[in-house]
Nucleic acid binder design. Structure first.
Lengths: 135, 135
DNA sequence: ATATCTGCAAACTGTTTGCGCGGAA
DNA sequence: TTCCGCGCAAACAGTTTGCAGATAT
């Protein structure tokens, strides 16, 4: 029973085979899979799972804050299980995604929002960059 | 003939009544209207315009970099004509978008990217917030 | 026992596209 | 005259939902 599963149980969710399979996939995914990708991976474990269940479960986990739902400027959602707050730098040449975190940035964001009269509920910074040339 | 219209002509687009109406609406919109909103505003000028044309024109303008297309964590696109670099704070309650710019932020982003060995090509910060309560 | 969960298929939403007519250049 | 652009309706993709049966607790 993995961490995610434990949290689901204590959130009062019934632990079905389908959910166990989905949670296993999420737990083992180091990337940012789409619903379709999660679905494909889940079917390798249990081919009977329907995509409707994947959608329902993913949305449920998102509401429980056990996964993070991203838009990534695309017309479909992508998910990650890493819960610590972080941001993404995307290498425009290779598509590689680098995750980062910065305390000064966190403080500055809060400061900016406060100046505008808001409390931050959520936020997202995406840097698109090219590797520096060593000249 | 507004700025947008001039740019369209020099990009080789044919200037039809429909496009003129859409460009006028965009030019006069200080907010970040959705396709539907642009459509409604355009119909006040010319009720015969179809929503397909609004979609086609908006996408065209986006490709020409004459408007900026945003996702804003929503399932529909929103547009703005402001082209100068800035970021957005989205009111999660109302959907209102507030624009901001911050020099310290610009420097910090550059610093973070440099630390990771990158030069920024493009970037996007979105803050989702709730109005502070005056306690 | 019973409330929750499931698969299925149909519905929904935002968006795109093929078609044949019409209008800008 | 020649494309390009248009309105219309159908198609599309991703996602959600009503239903009736199945299952975890």
């Amino acid at each position: 029973m993995n961490e995610l599963e434990r949290k689901c149980v204590s959130a009062g969710l019934k632990m079905t085979d389908q959910r166990r399979a989905i949670l296993k996939v999420l737990d083992e995914s180091g990337d940012h899979p789409s619903v379709e990708t999660v679905y494909v991976r889940v079917k390798e474990i249990d081919p009977s799972v329907s995509i409707a269940t994947v959608y329902r479960t993913l949305n449920l986990l998102d509401q429980l804050h056990l996964v993070q739902k991203h838009g990534f400027n695309s017309n479909f959602a992508r998910f990650e299980t890493k819960l610590e707050h972080h941001h993404h730098l995307i290498d425009v040449e290779t598509g590689t995604v680098i995750e980062f975190q910065d305390d000064k940035l966190e403080e500055l964001k809060r400061e900016i929002a406060a100046r505008l009269g808001y409390d931050i509920v959520e936020d997202m910074l995406e840097l698109y960059g090219r590797k520096k040339q060593l000249s």
